[in-house]
């Protein structure tokens, strides 16, 4: 409901100022946490832990730790519409946006609590405060969402963005099927040569990105 409300309000220009946007995005994040909690509880009811799994859990865990920590997760989310776009994140991984002039940025603020293997998670008791977000009416040509297995494989993020740029070029020039094949090869390689962490990558690009891309690639 909060997501629908946010998208409707933003689309209808009902978000009047930064405070409004902030409030609505925070509401959306709380809604995500709540719905996630409901789903976890339901899944736990349908698939209770086996005795050998329970034996691995710390003995000092309370009821909430017991259920929710096991399902703990980071979350990266982005939506791009014709009028605006936003990104939401909790935990590590990164969201990169490419602007019309071809530059890459990381618009969602980084959380210094995510360091090496430590990360915030949607299962944290203060998860609502740990979410970060970004909203803009300046549309990106492409948005890349990746888990830390991808984003932290490269010390220099310019190298990572170079890969993203190539991937976009393949998808635009050779189609999604070819792009998927490249991705299917690329992610296991990053996992093997990188930190062997989970490697996931999602990409949003607009039809206008094709023209922009041709312009950018054409001048190289």
């Amino acid at each position: 409901m909060a997501a629908e409300e946010f998208i409707k309000n933003a689309g209808n220009n009902l978000l009047k100022n930064a405070e409004d946007i902030q409030r609505q995005l925070s509401q959306l994040e709380k809604c995500i946490i709540s719905r996630w909690g409901d789903e976890v509880y339901e899944d736990f009811g349908a698939h209770p832990y086996r005795d050998d799994e329970i034996a691995k859990l710390p003995s000092d865990w309370g009821f909430d730790d017991y259920i929710y920590s096991v399902y703990g997760s980071t979350l990266l989310l982005a939506a791009v519409t014709e009028k605006y776009w936003f990104g939401i994140q909790i935990g590590d991984g990164r969201i990169f946006a490419q602007s019309a002039d071809g530059d890459f940025s990381e618009p969602v603020p980084w959380d210094e609590n995510c360091f090496l293997n430590a990360t915030t998670s949607i299962c944290d008791s203060d998860a609502a405060d740990e979410f970060r977000h970004y909203y803009s009416e300046i549309l990106p040509t492409a948005v890349f969402l990746c888990t830390d297995g991808v984003s932290e494989a490269y010390r220099d993020k310019k190298d990572l963005c170079k890969i993203f740029e190539q991937l976009t070029r393949i998808i635009i020039s050779q189609g999604k099927f070819k792009g998927k094949r490249v991705l299917d090869k690329m992610l296991p390689e990053i996992s093997e040569y990188g930190n062997r962490d989970d490697t996931s990558l999602s990409l949003i690009y607009s039809k206008d990105a094709v023209l922009t891309k041709e312009k950018i690639f054409g001048r190289r």
């Binding site: 010390r155 190298d159 890969i163 190539q166 393949i170 070819k178 094949r181 490249v182 930190n195």
Partner: peptide
């Protein structure tokens, strides 16, 4: 399989 696009930016070893 297609050629890896990582050849242009190989994943570096960590320290």
């Amino acid at each position: 399989m297609p050629e890896s696009i990582l050849t242009s930016a190989p994943v570096p070893r960590k320290t």
